[in-house]
Write a protein that binds this DNA or RNA. Structure first.
Lengths: 116, 116
DNA sequence: CGCACAGGTTACAACATTGTTACAAGAATC
DNA sequence: GATTCTTGTAACAATGTTGTAACCTGTGCG
């Protein structure tokens, strides 16, 4: 598995390398893993305010992250013309395929936090 | 799995929450996942210059990341009194338990980069 | 002598990110 | 008429992060 991945990385052309880098930069932004994780925890669509409360950041930052995720096709944004506005966010199919990795990562983080 | 994790997060005390946050901030720093990944790719100790070349950052940043990882007990640093200095880095046992998650994450990233 | 080597450290300037504040929309409620 | 609600956006100051250039160790080599 590891060796196969290393080979893949070695054989990659420049554009693929760029994409890998882009994705890593995206995932490394503050609160990004957290947002993806909580969107994954519950299969039902989440509202902006729920996400904001859960990650504990300013709305500016949450907005930025969500739109970055949307731009990369990992999150789907649906706005309803209610008053006041209602907006829901869900993970796309692509992002759902990331879920097992995220769960595994968070499992490790939680285990490690327990031990401290 | 997901529900269990959500429950664990909900039941966490403040100090555990702090630890989770700390770990997520640590893992979200630029090049951090990359460094952990390449340290994991090869089981043998890696030298500073190899790591630096692989992640393509300034030595300042690589040094910072490696010492942050060492401070969190994820990386072990061994310096040999040769001339010029030789320094080797290896993942600790704790970090090795993170490997499957990282491999899974990178697998997703590589798959996704392929499709672009 | 003077430079090269590996693996850093330090100071500092340039750049990026974050939070804060103010504002918007438009119906409902006091 | 003022205020509340949600989901943002824009401008800006404060803060954080990064790279660059200079420097360090101590031996070997020309």
């Amino acid at each position: 598995m590891t060796a196969v991945q290393a080979e893949r990385m070695g054989a990659m052309c420049d554009s693929a390398r760029t994409h890998v880098n882009e994705l890593l930069v995206l995932l490394s932004k503050s609160k990004m893993l957290h947002i993806l994780y909580i969107l994954n925890c519950d299969p039902k669509p989440m509202r902006f305010s729920e996400i904001k409360k859960s990650v504990d950041s300013s709305s500016t930052t949450v907005t930025r992250r969500l739109s970055e995720l949307e731009a990369h096709g990992l999150v789907k944004r649906t706005a309803y013309p209610t008053v006041p506005t209602t907006v829901e966010y869900t993970l796309t199919k692509d992002a759902v395929s990331l879920a097992p990795s995220l769960e595994s990562l968070f499992g490790w983080v939680l285990d490690r936090a327990d031990k401290q």
